[in-house]
Design a binder for these strands. Structure first.
Length: 643
RNA sequence: GCCCCGGUGGCUCAGCUGGUUAGAGCGUUGCCUUGGUAAGGCAGAGAUCGCGUGUUCAAAUCUCGCCCGGGGCUCCA
């Protein structure tokens, strides 16, 4: 048999006979490598361990340590899941089952949705398949045969996939009796799957299109060891303890009530206090930067939204009101209102840029399954603003906006928890986007150029733009790992024209200004949610709704405590008292659970010496502290907004 | 809008293969007690068991519909 040369990643070459498998190569390099091998790469493309080498090529061994290996394992587990489902549920049609960030899922077309019981049965069946250690056997079919195969199986989804990839030879993987269309690669056999867990079910649309068939999705995850799986599940449980929806309610920041309605949280005094602090901070900082505050109506006639394009592109998401003689709608955005203000008087190039901001209350009629705590609501308050400028000013104004956002993120201590996304339009989606390909192209190019000039690190996303222009989004992940946009900055080419906004330039001609739609801290509700999860409720002092908790040991200390409280409050420190007849340790514990930055414990000694005892929430204790000095320190800390 | 899970005093939960006045802990109210060491003592208040409907001699428990909360899909600040 003739030899072929394989080149390994370290550059070394190896002569092997034609038909040698990747697995053999791995073992020939070393016993350990052989056992750790999951798959391989031939000339850069992934391949099964059982793949035979046919010609001179570069070969790489993928071991359990690499990210790709984990994806292969998870995707292989999805096959096992599909095998179990097909065996247990007659008529279940497998569709797709990819590996995702933390695991995998598989979508099935079934008559009846899966219940929790079904999941248990599927789980048990999967364990059986794994125990049998079935081989993943690869085979190929002609296009015609493959379609025939799925015609017989009445699986139109797979047929659709095959037709979409009609330039490729359809490959199949078989475990036991279950054949599944798949590119691969997979682990050698089901026995390689040692630790998996099915995590949740949901419905999902075929091709992610809500007009297409509803499929049943099963999510799961898999790891190379039980220990890693356990650690992962513990990590998830830990993250969920930070869930703003849980601790936000526990800390009495907000509540909901069924009689108020979905997506309409009620901010309680403490939550409102936090938002007030944030709002004042934002409005003051923006005023320093030349922003002009506006206050515009919560609703307008449909005419306004027809001009802006909301009526055509956004109506489904608006609350439309019957206003007796006219049709009104609650505003989903403030831009049209601020544009009307701009237009109320003619503008010279000398006036630009004009920067309006508004702490605007917005209403969006989200689909009923969308609402989530403070993150996704039907009424929210956005730090919204519009920079109206000349095209020449666009780049520097855009930079200023980003700098402002960075400043706010840093102040809130979340600058390391966010990342950037450049959101572009989808030319195929005529309903969602204003149809003006030339303008889209120009504005997207303009934004990309600015972003690249600023050397910002960002990911690109298609079909995520606003209906009127591309967006630069600041993204974060919630306690469950779900991604959300916290802030967005948009370059708008469409609305200045629709509203016929102009300015008179140096040459005495009317010109079209550019508009930057921007937020600075995002919407207050969502930002609050993010802060709760970031700090697990233990907020930096300056934003904490209760900064100091006053704890008395016995009733006779209450008089003095009141005096201390007065002193603190006179200087704007937010104090909460706890004069109940409970044990001190219990009160302190409770205060710590409530994540309060400082606790003052008062007893006879403190009163005699006219001093206070201060404990931090971390447990650090300072005895005999002068109350005035403490107040000074805390005010200093708040002023510097140190974390 | 679609799928799954849930809704029992302010909170956390038990009861839910239908059967006497619906339980517990925490919280809360009153009195007593108080430098306590993960919860001082005693007494009390507080629940149309999410709402409606049906089945039944009988429903917190079973049907169906609706509302709200949660996890996903779609969508999105």
């Amino acid at each position: 048999m003739s030899d072929v040369v394989v080149t390994l990643p370290d550059g070394s070459k190896k002569n092997v006979s034609k038909g040698t498998t990747i697995k053999d190569i791995a073992f020939s390099i070393g016993e350990g490598l052989g056992r750790a091998a999951v798959a391989g790469k031939i000339d850069g493309s992934l391949a099964d361990l059982s793949k035979q080498i046919e010609k001179n090529s570069k070969v790489e061994i993928i071991t359990t340590k690499s990210k790709e290996a984990l994806e292969i394992l998870r995707h292989s587990t999805a096959h096992v899941l599909a095998s179990a489902v097909v065996e247990l549920f007659r008529g279940a049609k497998p569709t797709i089952g990819p590996a995702i960030e933390d695991g995998f899922y598989y979508d099935f077309y079934v008559e009846k949705p899966f219940t929790l019981d079904d999941i248990e049965k599927i789980d048990a069946k999967m364990k059986e398949i794994i125990k049998k250690d079935e081989l993943f056997e690869r085979s190929e079919m002609t296009l015609k045969k493959a379609i025939e195969f799925y015609k017989k199986d009445k699986n139109k989804f797979k047929q659709e996939i095959i037709k979409e990839h009609k330039d490729e030879v359809p490959s199949f993987y078989k475990i036991g009796k279950f054949m599944d269309l798949c590119k691969g690669p997979h682990v050698l056999s089901t026995g390689a799957i040692s630790a998996f867990k099915l995590t949740k079910t949901s419905s999902a649309y075929w091709r992610g299109d809500s007009k297409k068939e509803s499929l049943q999705r099963i999510y799961g995850t898999a790891f190379f060891s039980k220990k890693e799986l356990k650690e992962y599940l513990e990590m998830i449980a830990e993250a969920e303890k930070r869930d703003h929806n849980k601790i936000g309610r526990e800390l009495e920041l907000f509540t909901t009530h069924e009689s108020v309605g979905q997506g309409l949280p009620l901010l309680m005094p403490k939550g409102t206090k936090m938002i007030q602090i944030l709002q004042r901070f934002v409005e003051d900082e923006e005023e320093q930067l030349g922003y002009l505050l506006t206050k515009t109506p919560f609703m307008a006639k449909s005419e306004l939204y027809k001009i802006s394009g909301h009526w055509d592109h956004y109506k489904d998401d608006m609350f439309v009101i019957d206003g007796k003689d006219e049709v009104l709608a609650l505003r989903p955005m403030t831009c049209p209102f601020q544009f009307i203000i701009y237009k109320s008087k003619s503008k010279s190039y000398r006036d630009l840029p004009i920067k309006y901001n508004e702490t605007s209350t917005l209403f969006r009629n989200e689909a009923s399954g969308e609402m989530h705590g403070l993150i996704r609501v039907r009424q929210f308050t956005l730090s919204e603003g519009h920079v109206i400028c000349t095209p020449q000013q666009l780049e520097s104004e855009f930079r200023d906006v980003i700098d402002l956002i960075k400043h706010f993120m840093k102040t809130l201590g979340i600058d390391k928890d966010i990342w950037y996304r450049f959101s572009k339009w989808d030319p195929k989606d005529k309903k969602k986007y204003i149809d003006n390909p030339k303008a889209w192209d120009e504005s997207q190019k303009a934004m990309k150029k600015i972003l690249d000039n600023m050397k910002l690190d960002y990911v690109e996303a298609d079909g995520e733009a606003a209906f009127y222009g591309p967006k630069f989004d600041i993204q974060f992940k919630n306690a469950y790992g779900k991604e959300d946009t916290i802030i967005t900055v948009q370059i708008d080419f469409a609305l200045p024209e629709r509203f016929d906004m102009t300015y008179v330039d140096k040459d005495n001609t009317r010109k079209r200004p550019m508009v930057i739609h921007r937020s600075s801290v995002g919407c207050y509700e969502r930002t609050l949610a993010m802060l709760i999860e970031k700090y697990a409720g233990a907020f930096p002092t300056w934003i904490s709704p209760v900064q100091v908790k006053l704890i008395t040991i016995a009733d006779r200390h209450v008089g003095y405590a009141d005096k201390v409280k007065e002193k603190l409050e006179a200087l704007g420190v937010r104090v909460e008292e706890d004069y109940r007849t409970e044990t001190v340790e219990y009160k302190i514990r409770e205060a710590q659970l409530a994540k309060i930055p400082y606790m003052i414990v008062l007893g006879d000694k403190e009163i005699e010496k006219k001093k206070i005892t201060v404990r931090t929430r971390a447990g650090k204790v300072s005895y005999g502290v002068d109350a005035d000095k403490f107040v000074k320190d805390i005010v200093c800390e708040i002023e510097s907004k140190k974390i």
